[in-house]
């Protein structure tokens, strides 16, 4: 990591300090369902942190706490020096979240989906916005989709539009909720490159929720595995392989037993 810790955006000359994220004793319950249990986590400015874990373990909920869409039941989340639950935090720090389901604006074209943020925040002239938007679309091979509506896109295209839209926001902190889940291997590799480039060149802090082991092991500075609402392990990729925690090892390398498939027990 370079010592200056400045984020420079791919799309603008503006510089701002890289931000870290700190969860302190973060707990979250929905009614009687405890989703997050006293999570302590410190993500360094400019780090790529990959969050893995079984489906339903609370990864998306954790991301939503960081962008302030959910409020902690107990404990707190700090982004830089600001409390993530406060609305002002989003004015102080540019964050972008790639939603698991995309969350594209269905009544806007792909182009307008991307252009909304810079237009509303008056970041550039219409010509400047056009340049930014087309560049982001190009990075994700979406030039031909600019005039289409989200309903006319495939699942993977929608995901890419969501990523492109986040890029246009020029974030200091970028959160991805399963960015590669619907993408082919080549596109997945492109996403890994994007994440790594944003870190190396612009010191963007990235938190990536992913089930993609390759992505995690290739680009992560550290990987955290969330299990039943707790972080079972937080370690650099190399450290994961040496884990002695059986649950973690099983999660990363599930045994496939064709002779005795798991569902056969259920089938009776």
């Amino acid at each position: 990591m370079s010592p200056c810790h400045q984020t420079r955006n791919p799309f603008s000359e503006a510089e701002s300090p890289a931000v870290g994220v700190v969860c302190e004793q973060l707990s979250k319950s929905f009614g009687s369902l405890e989703v997050l249990k006293q999570i302590d986590l410190r993500i360094e400015p400019g780090e790529i942190f990959v969050l893995m874990g079984p489906s339903g373990s609370g990864k998306s909920v954790l991301l939503k706490h960081i962008v302030g869409l959910e409020r902690p039941s107990a404990g707190k989340v700090m982004v830089g020096e600001f409390d993530a639950a406060e609305a002002e935090t989003r004015e102080k720090i540019r964050m972008a979240l790639v939603f698991q389901a995309g969350a594209l604006f269905n009544s806007l074209t792909v182009y307008d989906n991307l252009a909304l943020y810079p237009r509303e925040h008056r970041l550039a002239s219409e010509a400047g916005i056009r340049e930014k938007v087309m560049r982001a679309l190009q990075i994700l091979s979406l030039e031909n989709a600019a005039g289409k509506y989200p309903s006319q896109l495939s699942g993977g295209m929608r995901k890419r539009v969501a990523i492109a839209r986040a890029l246009v926001q020029e974030p200091q902190l970028m959160l991805y909720d399963e960015p590669t889940s619907e993408l082919d291997p080549v596109m997945s590799a492109t996403i890994s490159e994007i994440i790594a480039t944003l870190k190396d060149e612009y010191h963007v802090t990235s938190i990536v929720v992913s089930h993609d082991r390759d992505l995690a092991l290739n680009i992560a500075d550290r990987v955290g595995i969330l299990m039943e609402g707790r972080l079972a392990i937080v370690a650099p990729p190399a450290g994961l392989r040496q884990t002695t925690d059986e649950r973690v090892a099983d999660f990363l390398n599930p045994k496939i037993n064709l002779k005795q498939p798991r569902f056969r027990e259920l089938a009776g």
Partner: peptide, 17 residues
């Protein structure tokens, strides 16, 4: 309501719009 249910409103909030 559809924007809310399909998280478009959440997306606006995270965009600080």
């Amino acid at each position: 309501a559809s924007m809310k249910v399909y998280q478009e409103v959440d997306a606006l909030v995270t965009m600080n719009i």
